[in-house]
């Protein structure tokens, strides 16, 4: 936005909202909303504590493990679906189904099968992340320019060489896009899983602060969490932009 000839960056409006929050908090309009300044101070106080760090470690390890599984299974499956019509026909309906289904409903199933622990959270992360990775990888493989494949064939490249030298690189922008979207979805997944299981990680923390009505603590954790999620999404977006030109030949 431009005010009096000065361009004010988009993030400027976040400051405006923060100010509004501070005012509402100071006026004590609702007990739910403590002033932002106190929340931020509380955040600095909470983050170094054992409780927070262990919750973070538990969450991060489930998140990383789940995403790794989703990538290791999802990318090869996507490449298979992108290059084989039969595999595509077999798997595509299920991938599409799980992509738009309310996966939250499946968390109770995972809970009764695998108990109320870390395994359940990891599986929830996989469940949220994997489908978009598969679908994007498939799209990446399918949008590879046919002439690039012909080019490799004309110089005598074998199947494995074509896969290694062409497919993986040409589909990389889409694969990374899939991973980025998968990461965003699984951040939501890990929190939903922890809220439903409610005795691990941040889920337990929210329950604790909620039951004791510690609003400043609650908001502090929430803000840290949102900031982490946003930073993670932006980091992947940055990575993706760096390889965007790999797809440059597409019409």
């Amino acid at each position: 936005m431009i005010v009096f000839g000065h361009r004010i960056p988009m993030t400027g409006s976040l400051l405006l909202w923060a100010l509004l929050w501070e005012i509402v908090g100071q006026l004590k309009l609702t007990i739910l909303l403590p002033p932002l300044s106190r929340v931020v101070l509380r955040a600095f106080e909470i983050v170094p504590t054992e409780t927070f760090l262990s919750a973070f470690a538990v969450t991060a390890s489930a998140f990383v493990a789940g995403n790794l599984i989703a990538i290791l299974v999802g990318v090869p499956l996507g490449i298979l679906m992108g290059s084989s019509v039969v595999a595509d026909r077999i798997f595509l309906p299920w991938v599409n189904l799980f992509l738009s289904a309310p996966l939250t409903a499946l968390v109770p199933v995972i809970m009764v099968l695998f108990g109320l622990g870390q395994t359940t959270i990891i599986l929830t992360v996989v469940l949220f992340a994997i489908w978009i990775i598969v679908l994007d990888t498939r799209a990446g493989v399918r949008s590879i320019s046919p002439s690039l494949i012909e080019m490799a064939a004309s110089f005598g490249a074998g199947r494995w060489q074509t896969f290694r030298k062409i497919y993986v690189w040409a589909a990389l922008p889409e694969i990374l896009a899939g991973i980025r979207l998968g990461v965003i979805r699984s951040v939501k997944g890990v929190i939903i899983g922890q809220l439903l299981v409610s005795i691990v990680g941040f889920g337990a923390l929210f329950k604790l602060y909620g039951s004791r009505f510690l609003m400043e603590h609650f908001w502090a954790v929430l803000i840290v969490l949102f900031a982490l999620a946003f930073a993670l999404a932006e980091a992947f977006a940055w990575l993706e932009r760096r390889v965007e030109f790999y797809a440059a030949t597409r019409g």
């Binding site: 409006s13 929190i191 809220l195 929210f206 969490l225 946003f230």
Partner: peptide
């Protein structure tokens, strides 16, 4: 409005 919704899009709002 857009910063709010951009953050909301990537944040775990379930919390």
């Amino acid at each position: 409005a857009s910063p709010i919704f951009i953050v909301a899009q990537s944040a775990p709002l379930a919390a």
